[in-house]
Structures are given as structure tokens and as C-alpha cells.
């Protein structure tokens, strides 16, 4: 506990140019190189990797993760965190399937899942923006509440859709790809355009990079933060519906690891957890990298235990690179 030094009169000096526009994005294409390299290596070395069936399955498996991870990128760029994705991903389809069993309408079911996710996102936004609770803690607390609601909605039963046609929501083939994959592509494209090209996207970056300066510049930073939670909640609910369609079931006791997969995709892609920098394409690259890595391990029959350890090391590596670049560009 010492007395604070006075640093008020430190003029900033020109330092060697290193960083580039929009938070180092342009200069850092490492993850793309890694994705392409891994794809080529696996295609050449691993029999069964480069086949239409394998690659289609790979995309289908990744679809729900990509649908949630793309808007999650916006949450992180705005300088926040959302760990409630798993709970939303599990609970929203329980709401959706209850609606489906009562109305028989697949469209209404999907809409209900989407609305449930949106409501969860609104709850998160309320806690973060109005109650001003740290988003890591508030979304953690929200996770438990939302998961608990899932048990209530489902009566602790495994829910299955009444109409076998529900499978078609995610599994219909269009132009050689499943609707799950195509919906993921649409969500990614929307988030990508939103973040990279629109005024809204600029405000998201500004809010995460320096919320005070953004406010002085007239950006409604609280609304921006709230909107990223709304988007992500709705997307997580939708992802849950896609997953329910793929597995034709939903239950409150489902695996909670979904949020880890989504966060891993964002972080491995190179979006900074400090906010203000990152991109949707990075998240897509991160998700594909992890997916191909796991797929390669499976095809080569590597013990799943080691897969987990290696994935952990990859995440550490990605975060390490981020920290290193940030300290080099520290101002």
C-alpha cells in the first residue's frame, strides 16, 4: 500500500509502429493459416477425413456452436462475458418442445425457443446494464436460474417432439448441405456484416475498447451492451432448437459444456477477452480449427482424454498470443 505516483505529466511518445487498424485485426491472420494447414495435413495424412460425409457431419456438429458463438463474439468485443449460454441452450428447446407438443406446430416451437432465448438474454442485459453486476458473475447466476426453469418446464422428463417432421428443421438437405449448416451460415453472415460493416458494429468495438470515450462520443454504451446479450440469448435459444431437431430430444440434464465450446471457438480464433478487438470470421476459424482437430484425433483413434488436454493447451496458446500482442502494443 504505497502512495500513488503522479503520472499526469507523462507525454506519450511515438513508438515503433506495430499495431494496425481496428485492433490488430488485419495483421493477424495466423488462425486462418492454421485452419488451412490443418485441413491440408488431415486431408493428406488421415484416411476418411477428406470425404463429403465426414465434412458434412463435421459442419452439422458445429452448427449449433457456430450459431451461438458468432453473436457471443459481439459480447466479448463489447467487453462483456456470457457464461449462461449452456443454460439457455438447454432450457429454450424445452420450452420449444412443450409448445410443439401442445400446438403441433414446428414453426411455433422454433419461435418459442427463440423467444425463450431472447427472454434469457434480456434478463442478462438487465443484470449487467441496469443492476450493473459484473457480467461474468451475473450470467453465472443467471445460468442456475435459467437451468432451474428448464427443470420446471420439462417436469424433469426427457422431451421428444410429437411430430417426426421436426427432424427436418435441421436435417433437410439443400444444395448438398443440411439446413442446420445453412442456418449457421446465415447467422454467421448476419453477425459478420453487423460487426464489420455497420454503424452498430463500430459502436460495439468502441464500447469495448473504451466505454467512457464511447459515451463522450455519443454512443449509448449501455444499450449496445444490452443488445449483444439479447442477440446472444436469442441465438443460444435457436441453437438449442437446432440441436433438439438433430437429436430429436431435449432434457434438462443435458451436458453443460456447450458454453465452453462456444467460448473456446471465440478465444482460439483470436478475439480479445479484453474487449474492443476481434471478428466473427475469427470465431468461425476457431470453431473449425477445434472441430477439425477433434475430428482428426477421432479418425486417428487418439484417446479422448488426450484430446481434452491438447484442446486446453491450444486455448492457452491462443490466449497467450493475445496477451503477448496486447502487451507489445500496450499504451
Amino acid at each position: 500500500m504505497t502512495i500513488t505516483d503522479d503520472t499526469a505529466t507523462t507525454p506519450s511518445t511515438d513508438r515503433p509502429a506495430r499495431s494496425t487498424a481496428w485492433g490488430n485485426t488485419l495483421g493477424r491472420f495466423g488462425i486462418l493459416v492454421a485452419v488451412v494447414a490443418l485441413f491440408i495435413i488431415l486431408s493428406l495424412t488421415t484416411p476418411g477425413f477428406f470425404s463429403g460425409l465426414n465434412l458434412r457431419n463435421l459442419l452439422d456438429q458445429q452448427a449449433p456452436i457456430l450459431i451461438a458463438a458468432a453473436p457471443l463474439t459481439l459480447v466479448l468485443i463489447a467487453g462483456q462475458f456470457d457464461v449462461s449460454l449452456s443454460a439457455v441452450y438447454i432450457t429454450a428447446p424445452l420450452v420449444g418442445l412443450q409448445v410443439e407438443s401442445h400446438t403441433g406446430s414446428i414453426a411455433l416451437a422454433v419461435l418459442a425457443g427463440l423467444v425463450a432465448g431472447l427472454a434469457a438474454g434480456a434478463f442478462n442485459a438487465l443484470l449487467v446494464v441496469i443492476c450493473r453486476i459484473n457480467s461474468f458473475i451475473s450470467t453465472l447466476a443467471a445460468s442456475y436460474i435459467i437451468a432451474g426453469i428448464g427443470y420446471l418446464v420439462s417436469d424433469q422428463a426427457i422431451l421428444t417432439p410429437s411430430s417426426p417432421g421436426f427432424r427436418g428443421f435441421a436435417a433437410t438437405r439443400v444444395l448438398g448441405l443440411s439446413t442446420a449448416t445453412l442456418m449457421a451460415v446465415v447467422v454467421i453472415a448476419v453477425c459478420w456484416v453487423l460487426l464489420a460493416l455497420t454503424r452498430y458494429g463500430r459502436y460495439v468495438y468502441a464500447t469495448g475498447a473504451n466505454a467512457e470515450a464511447a459515451k463522450v462520443s455519443g454512443v449509448r454504451t449501455r444499450w449496445i451492451v444490452a443488445s449483444t446479450f439479447l442477440l446472444t440469448g436469442a441465438a443460444a435459444g435457436f441453437a438449442g432448437m437446432v440441436n433438439a431437431s438433430q437429436s430429436m430430444s431435449a432434457q434438462a440434464t443435458d451436458d453443460f459444456s456447450f458454453v465452453f465450446a462456444a467460448l473456446a471457438a471465440v478465444v482460439v480464433g483470436g478475439t480479445s477477452i479484453a474487449g474492443g478487438a476481434g471478428a466473427v470470421w475469427r470465431t468461425v476459424a476457431g470453431a473449425l480449427f477445434i472441430a477439425m482437430m477433434n475430428n482428426g484425433f477421432n479418425l486417428n483413434q487418439v484417446d479422448p482424454i488426450y484430446q481434452r488436454i491438447i484442446l486446453g493447451l491450444v486455448i492457452l496458446g491462443a490466449v497467450g498470443i493475445d496477451a503477448l500482442t496486447r502487451s507489445r502494443n500496450a499504451t
Binding site: A21, R202, E212, G276
Partner: peptide, 16 residues
């Protein structure tokens, strides 16, 4: 603290 986005390009700072 309240003026600039140091990691953003100059043009982005001016136009925000």
C-alpha cells in the same frame, strides 16, 4: 480515459 480509442485508426477516432 475519455477521448481516444488508442487501438483504433485515426479516421475511426475522428468519425465515431
Amino acid at each position: 480515459a475519455e477521448g481516444l480509442f488508442l487501438g483504433f485508426p485515426v479516421a475511426g477516432n475522428i468519425a465515431l
